[in-house]
C-alpha cells in the first residue's frame, strides 16, 4: 500500500514514470516545516549535495548517508524572527541563505560553517521591509525593499565567509518589485515582475533599468520564475496565482512569454494548466528548474509540468500521511523535493 501511495500518478498517457522516489528524511523535531532546499557542501575535500530544511525557528543541514538515507549535520536556531523561506544560491558552496520576518521579510541571513572558529554560525546581510529576494550565480543576492518614500533595489556580492564584499544599487521601477529571476545566457541581466504587472529588465553591471514591459491585463499579479535569452528574445516563465479560470485554458499554472526587449512587445508561447479533473488551484510559490515547473495545489497534491511543451507530466497525490505543502527542485538536477508540514521530505528523481 505504501509503495502504491508513493507512486506518482501519470495523466499523460502511457510512458515511463517521470518521478521516482529516491529517499526520504523525517525531521522529528520539526513542528511546522516552512521550506526545503539543497546546497552544495564541501568538507574534507568532498563536495556533495546536502538538503536544507527550515521550520519557523530553526534551519537544519542534512548529509547523505548510504543507502537512501539522510543524517542531520547541524541545526541553526534563529529565535528572534520566524524563518519565511530559504533563498537558494545557485552554484554556491557552503552557504545557506534564509529570509526571516513576520508577514514580510524583515532580514536576510547567511548560515555557514567557519573554519576559523571551527563552528557553525550565521551573519546578517540585510534588514528592511524586503519585498522580494533572489540568489544568483557567483554568490550574488538581489533584493527589493521599500521605505515610505522610495523603493531600493540592491545587489550584494557575498564573500565565502558570509560577509558582503560589494553592494550595487539598481535603478528601481516606479511600482514595487514582487519577484526576480536570473536570465540564462546573460550573466549580467536580471528580470523582475512588478505589482503593476510588468516585466522589468536590469543591467546588473551598471545598475541600469533597461526596459519595462507590460504583461497584459488577462493575467494579473504575474510572478517571474526563470528567464532565457535566445535568438534576440527574452523568454520569461511566469506564474499567475491570482488568474481566473478561463474556458480556453482552464486554470493557468505557468506561462512562457516571449518578449522582444527592443520593442517591448510580447506573445504567449506556452500555457501550462491544471488538467481537467485535477481539483484545486496552485498555491503561490511554485518552483522552476530548467524547463520544468512544480507547484503545490490546494488539494495537497504536487503537480509537475514540462513548460516548453505545456504538458502536465506528473502529480504526487496527497497521501494518508498528509498533504504536500512544499515543492522545490533540488540543485544539480538531483530531482524534486516534496515536503509536508510535519517535517517529512521526499526526494524524487525526475
Amino acid at each position: 500500500d505504501v509503495s502504491e501511495q508513493l507512486t506518482p500518478v501519470l495523466l499523460d498517457g502511457p510512458r515511463e514514470e517521470s518521478l521516482q522516489l529516491v529517499s526520504e528524511l523525517q525531521d522529528s523535531s520539526c513542528s511546522c516545516a516552512v521550506d526545503v532546499s539543497t546546497v552544495w557542501w564541501e568538507a574534507a575535500g568532498c563536495r556533495e549535495l546536502r538538503v536544507v530544511t527550515a521550520s519557523e525557528s530553526a534551519v537544519s543541514l542534512w548529509e547523505p548517508l548510504a543507502p537512501a538515507c539522510w543524517g542531520k549535520v547541524y541545526t541553526w536556531h534563529l529565535g528572534e524572527m520566524p524563518v519565511i523561506q530559504i533563498v537558494p544560491l545557485p552554484d554556491t558552496c557552503n552557504l545557506v541563505c534564509v529570509a526571516l520576518g513576520e508577514l514580510e521579510i524583515g532580514e536576510i541571513r547567511l548560515l555557514l560553517y567557519s573554519s576559523e572558529t571551527d563552528s557553525f554560525k550565521h551573519s546578517l546581510v540585510k534588514t528592511g521591509n524586503i519585498k522580494a529576494v533572489v540568489g544568483l550565480k557567483d554568490r550574488r543576492l538581489v533584493s527589493s525593499s521599500r521605505t515610505m518614500q522610495e523603493q531600493q533595489v540592491e545587489m550584494v556580492s557575498l564573500s565565502e565567509t558570509g560577509g558582503s564584499k560589494d553592494r550595487q544599487t539598481l535603478m528601481p521601477p516606479e511600482d514595487t518589485v514582487t519577484a526576480f529571476a536570473e536570465v540564462e545566457g546573460l550573466r549580467e541581466a536580471l528580470v523582475g515582475t512588478t505589482a503593476g504587472n510588468s516585466v522589468v529588465v536590469w543591467n546588473l553591471k551598471t545598475g541600469q533599468l533597461l526596459r519595462k514591459m507590460h504583461v497584459g491585463y488577462s493575467y494579473p499579479a504575474s510572478i517571474c520564475h526563470r528567464a532565457y535569452s535566445d535568438s534576440g528574445l527574452l523568454f520569461v516563465v511566469l506564474s499567475h496565482p491570482l488568474a481566473k479560470e478561463s474556458e480556453s485554458c482552464g486554470s493557468p499554472a505557468f506561462r512562457v512569454v516571449a518578449f522582444n526587449p527592443c520593442t517591448g512587445r510580447s506573445v504567449g508561447v506556452m500555457f501550462s494548466c491544471l488538467p481537467p479533473g485535477c481539483a484545486g488551484r496552485q498555491v503561490p510559490g511554485g518552483d522552476v528548474w530548467d524547463a520544468v515547473g512544480a507547484a503545490v495545489l490546494t488539494s495537497g497534491a504536487v503537480a509537475v509540468w514540462d513548460l516548453l511543451r505545456g504538458q502536465f507530466v506528473a502529480v504526487l497525490p496527497p497521501g494518508p500521511a498528509g498533504h504536500w505543502a512544499l515543492a522545490r527542485w533540488a540543485g544539480g538536477g538531483a530531482g524534486l523535493l516534496a515536503g509536508r508540514r510535519d517535517g517529512t521530505v521526499h526526494l524524487y528523481r525526475y
Binding site: M171, L186, E188, A189, V201, N203, T206, Q208, L209, L210, R211, S229, S231, G232, L233, L234, A258, N260, P261, C262, T263, R265, S266, V267, V269
Partner: peptide
C-alpha cells in the same frame, strides 16, 4: 514568433539597450 507580432528583433538587444538607457 515573427516580426509582425514582436517588431524588429536584435540579437544584441542587451548591449543596445544598455547604450540607450540612462546611466
Amino acid at each position: 514568433c515573427s516580426e509582425s507580432d514582436l517588431g524588429p528583433i536584435s540579437l544584441n538587444w542587451f548591449e543596445e539597450l544598455s547604450t540607450e538607457a540612462p546611466p
